[in-house]
Design a protein around this nucleic acid. Structure first.
Lengths: 116, 116
DNA sequence: CAGCTTCCGTTCAACCAATGAACGTGATGC
DNA sequence: GCATCACGTTCATTGGTTGAACGGAAGCTG
Protein backbone atom coordinates (compact mmCIF):
# COMPACT_ATOMS: atom_id res chain seq x y z
CA UNK A 1 0.00 0.00 0.00
CA UNK A 2 1.40 3.36 -1.01
CA UNK A 3 1.40 5.44 2.16
CA UNK A 4 2.51 9.01 2.61
CA UNK A 5 5.66 7.72 4.20
CA UNK A 6 6.53 5.80 1.07
CA UNK A 7 5.56 8.72 -1.12
CA UNK A 8 7.99 10.78 0.88
CA UNK A 9 10.77 8.22 0.70
CA UNK A 10 10.32 7.73 -3.01
CA UNK A 11 10.24 11.44 -3.76
CA UNK A 12 13.39 11.85 -1.76
CA UNK A 13 15.22 9.06 -3.53
CA UNK A 14 14.08 10.38 -6.90
CA UNK A 15 15.25 13.86 -5.99
CA UNK A 16 18.68 12.46 -5.21
CA UNK A 17 18.74 10.51 -8.42
CA UNK A 18 16.02 10.78 -11.03
CA UNK A 19 17.59 7.95 -13.03
CA UNK A 20 17.47 5.39 -10.27
CA UNK A 21 16.10 2.06 -11.48
CA UNK A 22 13.05 0.35 -10.05
CA UNK A 23 15.26 -2.45 -8.79
CA UNK A 24 17.47 -0.03 -6.94
CA UNK A 25 14.43 1.66 -5.46
CA UNK A 26 13.12 -1.72 -4.38
CA UNK A 27 16.43 -2.52 -2.76
CA UNK A 28 16.67 0.75 -0.88
CA UNK A 29 13.07 0.64 0.27
CA UNK A 30 13.32 -3.06 1.05
CA UNK A 31 10.25 -3.98 -0.96
CA UNK A 32 9.63 -5.92 -4.13
CA UNK A 33 10.16 -4.84 -7.67
CA UNK A 34 6.51 -5.25 -8.61
CA UNK A 35 5.44 -3.13 -5.70
CA UNK A 36 7.73 -0.29 -6.67
CA UNK A 37 6.49 -0.49 -10.21
CA UNK A 38 2.88 -0.15 -9.03
CA UNK A 39 3.76 2.74 -6.71
CA UNK A 40 5.51 4.68 -9.44
CA UNK A 41 2.53 4.18 -11.70
CA UNK A 42 0.20 5.43 -8.98
CA UNK A 43 2.38 8.42 -8.22
CA UNK A 44 2.28 9.18 -11.90
CA UNK A 45 -1.53 9.02 -11.80
CA UNK A 46 -1.37 11.36 -8.80
CA UNK A 47 0.68 13.79 -10.88
CA UNK A 48 3.52 13.70 -8.38
CA UNK A 49 6.09 12.42 -10.83
CA UNK A 50 6.49 12.02 -14.56
CA UNK A 51 8.45 9.24 -16.20
CA UNK A 52 10.54 10.16 -19.18
CA UNK A 53 12.63 7.94 -21.35
CA UNK A 54 15.71 9.53 -22.79
CA UNK A 55 16.93 8.14 -26.09
CA UNK A 56 19.57 5.48 -25.63
CA UNK A 57 18.63 4.96 -21.99
CA UNK A 58 16.96 1.75 -20.91
CA UNK A 59 15.63 3.24 -17.68
CA UNK A 60 13.27 6.10 -17.03
CA UNK A 61 14.11 9.43 -15.53
CA UNK A 62 11.44 10.08 -12.94
CA UNK A 63 10.96 13.80 -12.72
CA UNK A 64 9.12 15.34 -9.83
CA UNK A 65 6.36 17.57 -11.15
CA UNK A 66 5.62 21.05 -9.77
CA UNK A 67 2.55 19.51 -8.15
CA UNK A 68 4.83 16.87 -6.67
CA UNK A 69 7.13 19.54 -5.29
CA UNK A 70 4.21 21.31 -3.69
CA UNK A 71 2.62 18.15 -2.38
CA UNK A 72 5.88 16.98 -0.95
CA UNK A 73 5.83 19.64 1.72
CA UNK A 74 2.40 18.71 2.99
CA UNK A 75 3.34 15.06 2.87
CA UNK A 76 6.39 15.83 4.98
CA UNK A 77 4.25 17.68 7.51
CA UNK A 78 1.81 14.80 7.65
CA UNK A 79 4.54 12.19 8.02
CA UNK A 80 6.22 14.25 10.71
CA UNK A 81 3.00 14.49 12.64
CA UNK A 82 2.43 10.74 12.36
CA UNK A 83 5.94 10.02 13.54
CA UNK A 84 5.58 12.30 16.51
CA UNK A 85 2.47 10.43 17.56
CA UNK A 86 4.28 7.15 17.12
CA UNK A 87 7.13 8.45 19.20
CA UNK A 88 4.76 9.46 21.97
CA UNK A 89 3.17 6.01 21.90
CA UNK A 90 6.60 4.40 22.02
CA UNK A 91 7.60 6.56 24.97
CA UNK A 92 4.54 5.37 26.83
CA UNK A 93 5.24 1.74 25.99
CA UNK A 94 8.88 2.03 26.97
CA UNK A 95 8.31 3.61 30.34
CA UNK A 96 5.58 1.08 31.01
CA UNK A 97 7.93 -1.77 30.18
CA UNK A 98 10.75 -0.28 32.20
CA UNK A 99 8.49 0.16 35.18
CA UNK A 100 7.36 -3.42 34.94
CA UNK A 101 10.87 -4.79 34.59
CA UNK A 102 12.13 -2.73 37.49
CA UNK A 103 9.29 -3.96 39.64
CA UNK A 104 9.91 -7.57 38.67
CA UNK A 105 13.62 -7.21 39.33
CA UNK A 106 12.86 -5.89 42.76
CA UNK A 107 10.43 -8.64 43.63
CA UNK A 108 12.84 -11.25 42.27
CA UNK A 109 15.63 -9.87 44.44
CA UNK A 110 13.23 -9.78 47.36
CA UNK A 111 12.38 -13.42 46.83
CA UNK A 112 16.08 -14.32 46.72
CA UNK A 113 16.73 -12.41 49.89
CA UNK A 114 13.85 -14.20 51.56
CA UNK A 115 15.33 -17.52 50.49
CA UNK A 116 18.81 -16.83 51.79
CA UNK B 1 1.86 -13.37 12.89
CA UNK B 2 2.32 -13.87 16.59
CA UNK B 3 5.19 -11.59 17.55
CA UNK B 4 6.74 -11.09 20.97
CA UNK B 5 4.91 -7.82 21.19
CA UNK B 6 1.60 -9.58 20.80
CA UNK B 7 2.65 -12.30 23.22
CA UNK B 8 3.36 -9.57 25.69
CA UNK B 9 0.09 -7.77 25.11
CA UNK B 10 -1.91 -10.96 25.36
CA UNK B 11 -0.19 -12.12 28.52
CA UNK B 12 -0.85 -8.74 30.03
CA UNK B 13 -4.53 -8.74 29.15
CA UNK B 14 -4.89 -12.30 30.43
CA UNK B 15 -3.17 -11.36 33.67
CA UNK B 16 -5.68 -8.57 34.15
CA UNK B 17 -8.56 -10.86 33.34
CA UNK B 18 -8.12 -14.58 32.74
CA UNK B 19 -11.77 -14.90 31.73
CA UNK B 20 -11.64 -12.39 28.90
CA UNK B 21 -13.29 -13.72 25.77
CA UNK B 22 -11.56 -14.08 22.43
CA UNK B 23 -13.85 -11.43 20.99
CA UNK B 24 -12.87 -8.98 23.70
CA UNK B 25 -9.21 -9.74 23.13
CA UNK B 26 -9.70 -9.18 19.42
CA UNK B 27 -11.36 -5.85 20.12
CA UNK B 28 -8.66 -4.64 22.47
CA UNK B 29 -5.83 -5.78 20.21
CA UNK B 30 -7.64 -4.50 17.13
CA UNK B 31 -7.31 -7.76 15.26
CA UNK B 32 -9.72 -10.40 14.08
CA UNK B 33 -11.37 -13.11 16.09
CA UNK B 34 -9.83 -15.90 14.07
CA UNK B 35 -6.40 -14.46 14.54
CA UNK B 36 -6.77 -14.30 18.31
CA UNK B 37 -8.00 -17.86 18.31
CA UNK B 38 -4.91 -19.01 16.43
CA UNK B 39 -2.59 -17.04 18.69
CA UNK B 40 -4.07 -18.48 21.85
CA UNK B 41 -3.71 -21.95 20.41
CA UNK B 42 -0.08 -21.28 19.56
CA UNK B 43 0.64 -19.82 22.97
CA UNK B 44 -0.88 -22.95 24.41
CA UNK B 45 1.48 -25.03 22.26
CA UNK B 46 4.30 -22.86 23.54
CA UNK B 47 3.26 -23.69 27.10
CA UNK B 48 2.78 -20.03 27.90
CA UNK B 49 -0.87 -20.35 28.80
CA UNK B 50 -3.35 -23.06 29.57
CA UNK B 51 -7.04 -22.86 28.72
CA UNK B 52 -9.43 -24.20 31.31
CA UNK B 53 -13.15 -24.44 31.14
CA UNK B 54 -14.94 -24.03 34.42
CA UNK B 55 -18.27 -25.77 34.78
CA UNK B 56 -21.16 -23.51 33.89
CA UNK B 57 -18.90 -21.07 32.06
CA UNK B 58 -19.13 -20.70 28.29
CA UNK B 59 -15.70 -19.12 27.98
CA UNK B 60 -12.27 -20.34 28.91
CA UNK B 61 -10.11 -19.11 31.72
CA UNK B 62 -6.67 -18.64 30.23
CA UNK B 63 -4.16 -19.26 32.96
CA UNK B 64 -0.57 -18.19 32.56
CA UNK B 65 1.68 -21.15 33.23
CA UNK B 66 4.86 -20.94 35.34
CA UNK B 67 6.78 -21.20 32.09
CA UNK B 68 4.68 -18.34 30.78
CA UNK B 69 5.49 -16.25 33.84
CA UNK B 70 9.16 -16.90 33.38
CA UNK B 71 9.10 -16.34 29.65
CA UNK B 72 7.20 -13.14 30.06
CA UNK B 73 10.18 -11.39 31.58
CA UNK B 74 12.48 -12.20 28.70
CA UNK B 75 9.77 -11.24 26.25
CA UNK B 76 9.45 -7.91 28.01
CA UNK B 77 13.19 -7.35 27.77
CA UNK B 78 13.15 -8.23 24.10
CA UNK B 79 10.18 -5.99 23.36
CA UNK B 80 11.75 -3.15 25.28
CA UNK B 81 14.93 -3.47 23.29
CA UNK B 82 13.01 -3.50 20.02
CA UNK B 83 11.06 -0.44 21.03
CA UNK B 84 14.17 1.45 21.98
CA UNK B 85 15.61 0.79 18.55
CA UNK B 86 12.38 1.91 16.97
CA UNK B 87 12.47 5.06 19.05
CA UNK B 88 16.00 5.80 17.94
CA UNK B 89 14.99 5.33 14.32
CA UNK B 90 12.01 7.60 14.83
CA UNK B 91 14.19 10.26 16.41
CA UNK B 92 16.41 10.20 13.37
CA UNK B 93 13.47 10.43 10.99
CA UNK B 94 11.88 13.24 12.96
CA UNK B 95 14.94 15.43 13.13
CA UNK B 96 15.57 14.79 9.46
CA UNK B 97 12.02 15.84 8.62
CA UNK B 98 12.21 18.87 10.86
CA UNK B 99 15.45 19.94 9.29
CA UNK B 100 13.98 19.64 5.85
CA UNK B 101 10.82 21.52 6.73
CA UNK B 102 12.74 24.30 8.38
CA UNK B 103 14.94 24.62 5.34
CA UNK B 104 11.96 24.67 2.99
CA UNK B 105 10.19 27.25 5.13
CA UNK B 106 13.22 29.46 4.93
CA UNK B 107 13.59 29.15 1.19
CA UNK B 108 9.83 29.72 0.73
CA UNK B 109 10.02 32.89 2.80
CA UNK B 110 13.03 33.95 0.85
CA UNK B 111 11.16 33.45 -2.40
CA UNK B 112 8.27 35.53 -1.13
CA UNK B 113 10.58 38.30 -0.05
CA UNK B 114 12.19 38.24 -3.47
CA UNK B 115 8.76 38.56 -5.07
CA UNK B 116 7.61 41.50 -2.99
C1' DC C 1 -39.55 -30.27 29.38
C1' DA C 2 -39.22 -28.32 24.84
C1' DG C 3 -38.15 -24.46 22.35
C1' DC C 4 -35.74 -20.18 21.86
C1' DT C 5 -32.05 -17.01 22.54
C1' DT C 6 -27.47 -15.76 23.70
C1' DC C 7 -22.70 -16.09 24.08
C1' DC C 8 -18.90 -18.84 23.61
C1' DG C 9 -14.85 -21.01 20.73
C1' DT C 10 -13.89 -23.01 16.26
C1' DT C 11 -13.46 -23.29 11.41
C1' DC C 12 -12.40 -22.13 6.80
C1' DA C 13 -13.49 -20.04 2.28
C1' DA C 14 -12.52 -15.63 0.59
C1' DC C 15 -9.81 -11.62 0.28
C1' DC C 16 -5.87 -8.87 -0.77
C1' DA C 17 -1.39 -6.90 -0.38
C1' DA C 18 3.06 -8.31 -1.64
C1' DT C 19 6.23 -11.15 -4.08
C1' DG C 20 9.55 -12.35 -7.65
C1' DA C 21 10.11 -15.38 -11.73
C1' DA C 22 9.39 -14.85 -16.35
C1' DC C 23 8.86 -12.04 -20.28
C1' DG C 24 9.44 -8.39 -24.01
C1' DT C 25 12.25 -4.68 -25.39
C1' DG C 26 15.99 -1.90 -26.61
C1' DA C 27 20.96 -0.86 -26.16
C1' DT C 28 25.63 -2.66 -26.16
C1' DG C 29 29.60 -5.66 -27.17
C1' DC C 30 31.78 -9.10 -29.90
C1' DG D 1 24.13 -10.95 -36.96
C1' DC D 2 23.97 -12.85 -32.55
C1' DA D 3 24.37 -13.00 -27.71
C1' DT D 4 24.13 -10.54 -23.58
C1' DC D 5 22.70 -7.33 -20.40
C1' DA D 6 19.72 -4.13 -17.98
C1' DC D 7 15.52 -2.29 -17.77
C1' DG D 8 10.25 -1.98 -17.00
C1' DT D 9 6.10 -4.82 -17.06
C1' DT D 10 3.12 -8.53 -15.91
C1' DC D 11 0.68 -11.89 -13.30
C1' DA D 12 0.24 -16.45 -11.04
C1' DT D 13 1.38 -17.59 -6.52
C1' DT D 14 1.98 -16.99 -1.72
C1' DG D 15 0.78 -16.17 2.93
C1' DG D 16 -1.26 -13.55 6.54
C1' DT D 17 -5.72 -11.78 7.99
C1' DT D 18 -10.54 -11.59 8.02
C1' DG D 19 -15.28 -12.38 9.63
C1' DA D 20 -19.49 -15.02 8.42
C1' DA D 21 -21.19 -19.27 9.59
C1' DC D 22 -21.42 -23.10 12.60
C1' DG D 23 -22.00 -26.23 16.72
C1' DG D 24 -22.35 -26.50 21.46
C1' DA D 25 -23.41 -25.16 26.13
C1' DA D 26 -26.02 -22.29 29.36
C1' DG D 27 -29.93 -19.50 30.52
C1' DC D 28 -34.53 -18.10 30.00
C1' DT D 29 -39.67 -18.67 29.21
C1' DG D 30 -44.16 -20.53 28.88
Amino acid sequence: MLTDEYRYKILKLLEDNASITQRELAGQLDVSLGWVNACLKQMGDEQLIQAQRSAGQPQYAYQITPCGQRTRRSIAVSVLSTKKSERAALERDISELEAELKQRDTSARGALRANS
